[in-house]
Structures are given as structure tokens and as C-alpha cells.
């Protein structure tokens, strides 16, 4: 653990923000105040923050349908994100993207993705740009255990090795692809797949921010130094179901309890830093309150904001028509 106080505060602030954002969406959605469908990241916060704390603003990530956490960790504005979820005109994508397509290229966020396995091929391209232009940036592609079975992931890992690209593949394995268990759907092992394609591959405890942070630090540094791509297989779990409205009947009550109580990355972080005396409990609680307050404002502002107008329907298909 070599993190400074500021970095620890940044990490916990980010995790709280993700937690508060998605908890709030959970309630708003249940209250029928939000259109579309949403996939929540609660329980996986350590992964997004552990990875993204190792990235600078010019590094890029491509995310998944469960992308709010990645967006926040990469620096997207929570109010603009929330407005987007409500389909408002000054949402982060002008209300044209919604929950599954949040992107902010100025922050290096190349887009959440509605297609399972859609992001990693795009990450190859960003990595190719860095390699061609000889910047020392990296690009990170998140995907889930479900996506690990898509050909696009295998193709991307192979291409990254062939062209020795600064690309990091992060498999956030929360145990379920929709309602189907990893044990059923994944033949062999995700880690071995990475190794088979020649990637520097590691399995990581995704509930523990510090483990993720350390593992990411190493592979990202290597990639920046031209040592090629890597795979992090992050074992994690999500509190809510696949999408909002999922009764999660495929999980047992005991499992749900375990996820909430024993595998909560915020709780684990809090315990570690207070026990080791790095941060005070009161400080952490203040950060939680701060995040809560910001999200409350984000929701209030989003509800008040304007919807796009009819003319917005036809713009932004092409740059030049």
C-alpha cells in the first residue's frame, strides 16, 4: 500500500459516488421516474476505481452496459450523467444515448456499450493510435464473464498480442451473465484464455480495492512501456440483478446477504484504512454524506431539465450531410 492520503480520499470518494449514484437510480427507477432500462454497478466499485486511478485523462476506457461506475471513475460529471439517464437535452450525450451509451471523449471515456463484448475491439483502436503516435497512453476495455464467451473478446486479445498494443482487458466477473451462472457458461477458465493468447494475465479479488489497484498499476505501467497487453480477471459480485426489475430469483437469499455484508468493497476499504489508521472513520462518513448530497442535487436538476426538441431528432447522424 503506497497510496497517499489524498489518493485514498480520492478512491473512497469515487467509490461512494458510484454507490450513491446507482443506489439512487435503483430507487428512482423503482418509482417509475426513469425511462428505459438500467444496469447497476453496486458491489463492483473497487474494480472501476482501482483501475481508473492508474489512468490519466488522455488514457481511454471502453465500458459495458453496466457502465455508470466506469464513467464516474474516469471522471464523467455525475449531474450530466444523471440528466442523460432521464433523457434530457443537456445530458452528457444530449439525451440521445441513455444509460447504456454514456460517453465523454474529453475525459477518455469511449462509451458504455449496449452490445456484450462490443467495447474491447474499440480499445484495440485507441491502443493502436497510441502506438502509432508514440504517446505512452493505454486503453482499457471492460467486459463481463458473459462477454468473455463472445468471439470479439478472443479476437481482440489475439490482435492485441500480435500488434503488441498498449491495451488492458479487464474482465469483471460477477458470476452471472444475465441469469446464467459463470460455472455453466464459461468453458475452461477466463484466466487461461488470456494466457493462451499470450497476455500477461492475473486473477484479482475485486472486492479489495487495493488488490485491484496494485494489479492494475503493474500491467498498465508495463503497457505504457511497450511491453504489450494484459488481462485482469477480476472476481467480483453485484448487489442488484442483471437489470432493474430483475427479481434475482436465480440467487439464494444467503448469497444475496453474503454479497451485501461480506463482499462490499466499500466496507472492506473502510475497515482496512481505519484499522491501519490511514484515515479516520469520521472522514470517511463525511465523504459518504458529501456524495449523497451531490447525487441528490443531480437528481433534482435532472428532473427539472428540458427534454430535447423535435429538431434534435435529425441532427448528429453525420458531421457533413
Amino acid at each position: 500500500m503506497q497510496l497517499s492520503r489524498e489518493e485514498l480520499i480520492k478512491a473512497y470518494t469515487g467509490m461512494c459516488m458510484i454507490r450513491e449514484f446507482d443506489d439512487a437510480v435503483h430507487y428512482e427507477f423503482a418509482a417509475d421516474a426513469m425511462p428505459g432500462f438500467v444496469h447497476l454497478y453496486v458491489g463492483e466499485e473497487a474494480s472501476a476505481m482501482g483501475i481508473c486511478m492508474n489512468l490519466n485523462e488522455k488514457d481511454t476506457i471502453a465500458s459495458t452496459h453496466r457502465g455508470h461506475g466506469h464513467c464516474i471513475a474516469k471522471g464523467c460529471d455525475v449531474t450530466d450523467m444523471m440528466k442523460e439517464l432521464y433523457g434530457k437535452k443537456d445530458g452528457i450525450c444530449g439525451g440521445k444515448g441513455g444509460s447504456m451509451h454514456i460517453a465523454d471523449l474529453s475525459k477518455g471515456m469511449l462509451g458504455a456499450n449496449g452490445i456484450v463484448g462490443g467495447g474491447p475491439p474499440i480499445v484495440l483502436g485507441a491502443a493502436l493510435t497510441y502506438k502509432t503516435k508514440k504517446t505512452n497512453n493505454v486503453s482499457v476495455g471492460f467486459f463481463g464473464d458473459g462477454a468473455s464467451n463472445q468471439g470479439s473478446i478472443s479476437e481482440s486479445m489475439n490482435m492485441a498480442t500480435v500488434l503488441k498494443l498498449p491495451a488492458i482487458f479487464v474482465c469483471e466477473d460477477n458470476g452471472y451473465a444475465e441469469s446464467t451462472a459463470r460455472e455453466y457458461a464459461v468453458g475452461g477458465s477466463i484466466l487461461d484464455r488470456g494466457k493462451a493468447f499470450g497476455l500477461d494475465s492475473h486473477e484479482v479479488d475485486g472486492d479489495n480495492f487495493f488488490e485491484v489497484y496494485d494489479a492494475a498499476k503493474q500491467v498498465i505501467e508495463n503497457a505504457r512501456n511497450g511491453k504489450g497487453p494484459a488481462l485482469l480477471h477480476i472476481k467480483t459480485s453485484k448487489v442488484y440483478g442483471h437489470f432493474e426489475g430483475d427479481a434475482i430469483s436465480y440467487r439464494t437469499k444467503e448469497e444475496n446477504e453474503r454479497i451485501k455484508n461480506d463482499e462490499d468493497p466499500l466496507k472492506i476499504f473502510k475497515k482496512k484504512v481505519t484499522e491501519s489508521g490511514l484515515l479516520e472513520l469520521s472522514q470517511l462518513e463525511a465523504l459518504e454524506e458529501e456524495a449523497k448530497g451531490k447525487i441528490k442535487i443531480a437528481i433534482e436538476e435532472s428532473k427539472k431539465a428540458e427534454f430535447p426538441s423535435a429538431k434534435d431528432l435529425l441532427t448528429d447522424v453525420y458531421i457533413k450531410y
Binding site: 481511454t60 471502453a62 471523449l105 469511449l110 474491447p120 475491439p121 474499440i122 480499445v123 484495440l124 483502436g125 485507441a126 491502443a127 493502436l128 493510435t129 497510441y130 502509432t132 503516435k133 486503453s139 468471439g151 470479439s152 479476437e155 481482440s156 489475439n158 490482435m159
Partner: peptide, 16 residues
């Protein structure tokens, strides 16, 4: 082909 098209798209999105 998927990796080619994806890589080209991502590269276009980031400055090539």
C-alpha cells in the same frame, strides 16, 4: 474481421 473493424473504429475515434 471483428477485431479489424473494431480497431479501425477505435483508432478513428481517438485520432487516426
Amino acid at each position: 474481421e471483428t477485431a479489424i473493424m473494431g480497431m479501425a473504429s477505435g483508432a478513428a475515434l481517438t485520432g487516426l
